[in-house]
C-alpha cells in the first residue's frame, strides 16, 4: 500500500512542502523540494523522525531549583513523552557540572541525559 506524507522542510527558512510517496519503508517518489538538501531531510523525516530533547530536572540543595538538560542524541519522535516521563521521576543532588551525565540509556533508547548548566551547592 502506498501512502503520501507531506513534510515541511526545515533545512532553511523557505520551508518547502515536500510530498513523500511511501510504500512501506520504500520511498517511491518525492516532490516539492526546491533544493537537494531537502531530500535527505524528507527521507529521514518520513522514515525515522528524531528530535533533540531539552527539558529540566529537579535539583536538591542547589542555587537553582532546576537544572536544564538535553539528550545526548536526537530521540525517536514517538519516544519523546516516554523520555520525559522518566526525567520527571528523578531529582539530582547539587553540585552539578555542565556536561555531567544525569541518566544513561533512558527509556531503552541508548541515549543519555546530560546537564546543560552548572549548579552550585548551597
Amino acid at each position: 500500500m502506498t501512502k503520501d506524507k507531506e513534510i515541511t522542510c526545515i533545512v532553511c527558512p523557505i520551508g518547502c512542502k515536500i510530498l513523500v510517496d511511501l510504500d512501506g519503508k520504500q520511498i517511491k517518489n518525492l516532490e516539492g523540494n526546491k533544493c537537494k538538501q531537502g531530500i535527505d531531510y524528507a527521507i529521514n523525516e518520513a522514515l525515522d523522525p528524531r528530535r533533540m530533547l531539552t527539558s529540566s530536572i529537579l535539583v536538591i540543595g542547589g542555587n537553582w531549583p532546576l537544572v536544564s538538560i538535553k539528550s545526548s542524541q536526537p530521540v525517536p519522535r514517538d519516544k519523546v513523552f516516554q523520555v520525559l516521563k522518566e526525567i520527571k521521576k528523578i531529582k539530582v543532588k547539587a553540585p552539578i557540572k555542565l556536561g555531567q551525565i544525569i541518566l544513561t540509556n533512558i527509556a531503552n533508547t541508548n541515549i543519555n541525559i546530560i546537564a546543560t548548566k552548572s549548579i552550585e551547592k548551597l
Binding site: 515541511t8 527558512p13 519522535r77 519523546v80
Partner: peptide, 12 residues
C-alpha cells in the same frame, strides 16, 4: 517563526 519551530514545536 522559523519553519523548524513550526514543525517541531506545533505540528509534532
Amino acid at each position: 517563526g522559523l519553519p523548524r519551530n513550526v514543525v517541531q514545536c506545533l505540528d509534532d
